[in-house]
Design a protein around this nucleic acid. Structure first.
Length: 855
RNA sequence: GCGGGCGUGAUGGAAUGGUAGACAUACCGGACUUAAAAUCCGGAGGCUUCGGCCGUGCGGGUUCAAGUCCCGCCGCCCGCACCA
């Protein structure tokens, strides 16, 4: 082969992918006795084509998988499809294609694309969540959860589109209107299925502390999401008759210390008390107004605090004769705490706003330590630390002490033979509503019978299959109007009954797929022993957009799986890494239309349109998106430069957790390096048998140091640094060739180098591996060893500082004594110059690092 | 508003409290070429009276030594948000 010949990546890459496939190199045996390593990237939604974000995600995962394989682990690295969801139904509505066909066609395309990346995946374990077999097993899990008491049915509020007569997801509500119909969306209460994730709120919170290989940021987000707060549940006795028949109004508070500052009570519009009063027209009108209020962030910001005085009064628990008015208020949430509060305006901003509006008393009861009795509150509530005052038996106490004292007092005090207060922990976390009124999802396997109630579909009748003959020409859930699907016999009494038509949230599908990968063909959802062997996933990689829901649901799911008897691995992901996005410049023409990068010329002159020559506007660098057209198709890059170039670029320069900017210059540079490596290794190979005339120790050391550093960098997921080390090693090899170092050293350095870049550029590595006469696959070659002793220098060069400024350097024996170094340093003319010849006040010698002379 | 993160050359970025700017891009010079591309060799933080001085968003502090630790600002990004 001529050295001038360029490396033909597309041809070479295809050849090696076939060779890997034929050798079944990446298929994993569950019975392999070696230590396991499970690496997983978040599986893709089959939207149609892969994008650069996938390339980055899977390139990273593949580096980890190939590295661990080389290190001798039994690596599991599977791939599948998160295949249920709305886009398939939208395609069906818009183009009349069945969601299943649309989905499987997309999968076929994307599978081919992923395969062209040369990922070391075990494709024999592939599945899609819309496969009947997968959702069959999911239905069995659902029934097991139901059996275990982890599933409930309750009223839940949904977005209802009155024109399309359908439930909308939050994302489908745009400015309060249905995205298709444009109709004003209403809030409706419908019976919904829920998973009881709140049963595990405490455990999900506590166990976050054990996830030490998760980003702190993600753990924090989950902590905030679960939202634990400690406080007091307290009951306020009505001053008179209560319309709902209860003797007391129960609230949850985290500030029982401020009880003497309480000046009103407020309940949510959905509170039972409000409902009990709703036969009054004015109350009903107020409730209706609250219901109309949107739940979006903007709505909330704009909304003024509004209240309705019910005329009811409750008694203050400690002040004889003081009563508090009870309001219905729009800022109280029914689904947090008890849906009712006591308002203490002086120490809560919302309560203060409310009190000012309705002319309620503002009584400060906590004051800063440097304030006196005249301490007051204007337009800003005081939420800082301090001491209690105006508070009878609490006066002078700290906030913490006062909280405890009030709790103690109310726990002793009784009302209707029960303690009036109870210490309580409240969570922000709600139960997980899994009902979706859609077709393209996993059917919930229950039957509604008038006499028997809710009846699980018997095991023998599973799976509940999605009917194929459905239409999407009318809005709403096609399952609802499919007579053959809906009308069934009750499995218990045999009378006519109605099948549940809700399907499961697609987050359910992705909450256990990683467990299914361990035994994808098992005739039960999860093979407990196998799952326990493989889980937790050692390294999970994906986007930070899944930091809360997907990861929290999966953590809950594995706890539920354990309770349902399918094996105990409550924490599914031991290591989590969230990678950054892929960004690109944006371009617009004069008319303000977005332009694709290929429509734009940036070189040689001002930016202009490729066809019209019209000047264009270069916009901000933003995350790649179809709407802004700042996308680059991975297929084009792979066809032009090869997968190795694309992978190498995705791993270079930018730390993996940050956003990476895609640039043509960057791809070109990556591709030049592919070609350069090929040239260098070809050149080196011709010299393997020559004795050489130069000294090879520099190259030898560089090779060993590179192995050490690249190993550490990959293990820490610092791919950009590993890439830099490989550039250094290539530079050292080039220098070695110029210096004509011995062939044996060249060969050793090249062999090490090829295995070291194989995780990033696996095809090139195979081609080079064969070229230099190595046996077998580079992908199966063991990770090279390095000799630490070789990297220890006999002498060491230390920088010499005078007063912290670098003035000279000295080369000394590695083991030189501090005194000896000090003597040498003090004799240096550069040091004399800056000390003025005077004896130094102090000399700091850090062996192997630095010397600092303090003059 | 609350919580978190980040500010380093023209650019992406590197740097266990120990020589700031590794590595790469862009740029400049040289070799090769009729020429260009590619390739190879080399240069390069700023200022300078050529002695040095100044440099990691700004201002303080700790330390023999600070990009790194502490305090206070400024700016940008992300998450959550009427959560009692």
């Amino acid at each position: 082969m001529s050295l001038e010949e360029r490396y033909n990546a597309p041809a070479v890459e295809a050849k090696w992918r076939t060779a890997w496939d034929d050798a079944k190199l990446f298929e994993t045996d569950n019975d392999d006795p070696r230590e396991k390593y499970y690496v997983l990237e978040m599986f893709p939604y089959p939207s149609g084509r892969i994008h650069m974000g996938h390339v980055r995600n899977y390139a990273m995962g593949d580096v980890v998988a190939r590295y661990r394989r080389a290190k001798g682990f039994n690596v599991l690295h599977p791939m599948g499809w998160d295949a249920f969801g709305m886009p398939a139904e939208n395609a069906a509505m818009q183009r009349g294609i069945h969601p299943g066909k649309w989905t499987y066609d997309n999968i076929a395309i994307m599978r081919t694309q992923l395969k062209s990346m040369g990922l070391s995946l075990d494709w024999s374990r592939e599945f899609a969540t819309c496969d009947v077999e997968y959702y069959h097993q999911q239905q069995r899990l659902f029934l097991a959860f139901l059996e275990a008491g982890l599933v409930t049915r309750a009223m839940g509020r949904v977005n209802w589109d009155p024109v399309d007569r359908t439930v909308l997801a939050n994302e489908q509500v745009i400015d309060g209107r249905g995205w298709r119909s444009g109709a004003l969306v209403e809030q409706r209460e419908l019976p919904q299925w829920f998973f009881k994730i709140t049963d595990y709120a405490e455990d999900l919170m506590d166990a976050l502390g054990t996830l030490d290989r998760w980003p702190e940021k993600v753990r924090l987000m989950q902590r905030n999401w679960i939202g634990r707060s400690e406080g007091l549940k307290m009951r306020f006795e009505y001053d008179g008759e209560a319309p709902d028949g209860s003797g007391a109004l129960t609230v949850f508070t985290t500030r029982p210390d401020t009880i003497f500052g309480a000046s009103f009570m407020a309940v949510a519009a959905q509170h039972p008390l409000a409902k009990a009063l709703a036969d009054r027209a004015d109350v009903a009108a107020f409730i209706a107004e609250c219901d109309r209020l949107g739940t979006s962030a903007i709505d909330i910001e704009k909304a003024e605090k509004q209240g309705f005085d019910t005329g009811l009064r409750v008694k203050h628990p400690f002040v004889e004769g003081r009563t508090l008015p009870v309001y219905i208020a729009n800022f109280i949430l029914m689904d947090y705490g008890t849906g009712a509060i006591f308002g203490c305006p002086a120490h809560d901003q919302r309560d203060l706003d409310f009190a000012r509006k309705y002319g309620l008393p503002v009584r400060p009861v906590v004051r800063p330590t440097d304030a006196d009795d005249t301490f007051g509150v204007g337009t800003e509530a005081y939420t800082g630390t301090g001491a209690l005052f105006n508070s009878a038996f609490l006066d002078g106490l700290s906030i913490a002490a006062a909280k405890a004292k009030v709790a103690d007092a109310l726990e002793e005090k009784t009302l209707d033979a029960a303690p009036q207060g109870e210490r309580a922990v409240n969570f922000r976390l709600r139960d997980w509503g899994i009902s979706r009124q859609r077709y393209w999802g996993c059917p919930i396997p229950v039957i509604h019978c008038e006499t028997c109630g809710i009846v699980p579909v018997p095991e023998a009748d599973l799976p509940v299959k999605l009917p194929e003959d459905v239409t999407f020409d009318t809005p709403g859930n096609p399952l609802d109007r499919h007579e053959g699907f809906v009308n069934v016999m009750c499995p218990q009494c045999g009378n006519p009954a109605r099948r549940e038509t809700d399907t499961m949230d697609t987050f359910v599908d992705s909450s256990w797929y990683f467990a299914r990968f361990t035994a994808p063909d098992a005739d039960k959802p999860i093979e407990p022993k196998v799952m326990e062997d493989w889980l937790p996933v050692d390294q999970y990689i994906g986007g930070v957009e899944h930091a809360i829901m997907h990861l929290l649901y999966s953590r809950f799911f594995m706890r539920a799986v354990e309770k349902a008897g399918y094996g105990a691995r409550p924490e599914p992901f031991a290591g989590l890494f969230t990678q950054g996005m892929v960004t690109h410049e944006t371009y617009k023409d004069q008319a303000g239309n977005w332009l694709f990068p290929e429509e734009v010329v940036l070189k040689d002159g001002p930016p202009r349109h490729a066809k019209t020559g019209e000047p264009i506007i270069v916009g901000a660098i933003e995350s790649m998106s179809k709407s802004k057209r700042n996308v680059v198709d991975p297929d084009d890059i792979i066809a032009n430069y090869g997968a190795d170039t694309a992978r190498w670029f995705m791993l270079s320069d930018t730390p993996p957790e940050r956003d990476i900017e895609w640039t043509d210059a960057g791809v070109e540079a990556a591709h030049r390096f592919v070609q350069r490596l090929w040239r260098l290794i070809n050149e080196a190979k011709t010299r393997f048998d020559r004795p050489g005339t130069g000294d090879g120790t520099t190259l030898q050391k560089a090779a060993h140091a590179a192995v050490r550093d690249i190993s550490a960098d990959i293990e820490a997921l610092h791919f950009n640094r590993a890439v830099a080390r490989l550039y250094e090693l290539a530079n050292a090899l080039q220098k070695g060739l110029a210096d004509d170092v011995p062939g044996a050293i060249l060969k050793d350095a090249v062999s090490k180098m090829v295995v070291c870049f194989a995780p990033m550029m696996p095809h090139l590595a195979e081609e080079c591996w064969t070229l230099i006469g190595q046996e077998g696959f580079a992908a199966a070659a063991p990770w090279p060893a390095f000799d630490e002793a070789l990297l220890v220098e006999d002498t060491v060069t230390l920088p010499v500082q005078v007063n912290g400024k670098r003035r000279a350097e000295v080369t000394v024996e590695k083991d030189a004594a501090k005194d000896a170094i000090e003597a040498i340093v003090l004799a240096l003319p550069e040091v004399h110059k800056f000390t003025g010849g005077k004896p130094p006040r102090k000399v700091i010698v850090v062996p192997g690092r630095i010397v600092n002379v303090v003059a």
